[in-house]
């Protein structure tokens, strides 16, 4: 096996509270992610999922510990523009239409006009917003806005995709459809995906491995390999193996 794509080594993260006290979000968290792996960070609210993701994306510096991405610092990788991020909230720019929001990162990365148009069209279709390209964010529902945020990150076709609860604002149907679509895209490109969720079936359905975090303070309570066959289709959700994994992961929570 090659050296891991991302190494999270003994990472501690403490935020400063209002009165200067330490709020420990991550307590000695370690895990590895292999190249091309689909990994989920799973856990209840406040367990440090977003914090971990932001540290990998160099949007936050850990208090101590080491994070290496391809043997470099997250900062170097960020400056190389290897990341694509889907935030927990849509983070759309109000003054840009849907198309131009999706376009923004490509604009900054100086994609050709032709390339941008092609990718925007493709992504709009993928997230089912073909007819909404010229709308402004305030004209969209919350779920639609979130899908624009997903389209914006996917359009870049980034080498490392960081997704923070991208589907949690969506209804069950759309979520399952987008789960499948995401797996499709991933299976074609085999990019590394770090996927944050608090939904156990979703984590099992998507992932090669699930890092289970427990809260207060955030710790790794289990790392579960998901050995379901790929390509996975929705029918896999009805298998007993699928069910066993859910039980197992749920058990690892109770063990905390």
């Amino acid at each position: 096996m090659n050296s891991p794509e991302i190494q999270f080594k003994n990472v501690n993260m403490a935020y400063k509270g209002k009165s200067g006290e330490d709020i420990v979000a991550l307590d000695n968290v370690s895990f590895d992610i292999q190249e091309g792996e689909f990994i989920s960070l799973l856990g209840p609210s406040g367990c440090g999922k977003t914090t971990s993701l932001r540290i990998i994306g160099d949007l936050l510096q850990p208090t101590s510990g080491e994070v290496l991405v391809r043997g470099l610092s997250p900062r170097e990788i960020r400056l190389q523009r290897k990341y694509g991020i889907v935030f927990q909230s849509p983070v759309l720019y109000d003054w840009r239409t849907v198309r131009r929001n999706i376009c923004l990162p490509m604009e900054i990365m100086k994609f050709s006009k032709k390339e941008r148009t092609a990718r925007i069209d493709k992504m709009l279709e993928l997230v089912g917003l073909q007819d909404f390209g010229q709308k402004y964010p305030y004209e969209l529902s919350g779920g639609m806005q979130q899908r624009v945020g997903i389209a914006r990150a996917l359009a870049l076709d980034p080498e490392i995709l960081l997704m923070d609860e991208p589907f949690s604002a969506l209804d069950e149907f759309t979520r399952e459809k987008l789960n499948e679509d995401l797996l499709n895209i991933w299976s074609q490109t085999k990019k590394t995906v770090i996927f944050v969720t608090h939904n156990i079936p979703e984590a099992v359905f998507l992932s090669d491995r699930v890092v289970v975090l427990s809260p207060h303070p955030g710790r790794v309570s289990a790392i579960v390999d998901i050995n379901l066959p790929r390509p996975r289709e929705n029918s896999v959700r009805e298998t007993s193996e699928f069910y066993d994994y859910i039980v197992k992961i749920r058990g690892s929570f109770e063990g905390v």
Binding site: L59, R78, I85, F87, S89, V91, Y93, P105, E107, L156
Partner: peptide, 20 residues
């Protein structure tokens, strides 16, 4: 919230952040 993070993700310069 996070609108600057979006810019940082694609390593946008301060000037780009200003104009865009």
């Amino acid at each position: 919230p996070f609108s600057v993070d979006l810019m940082h993700t694609v390593a946008a310069s301060e000037w780009t952040i200003f104009t865009k």
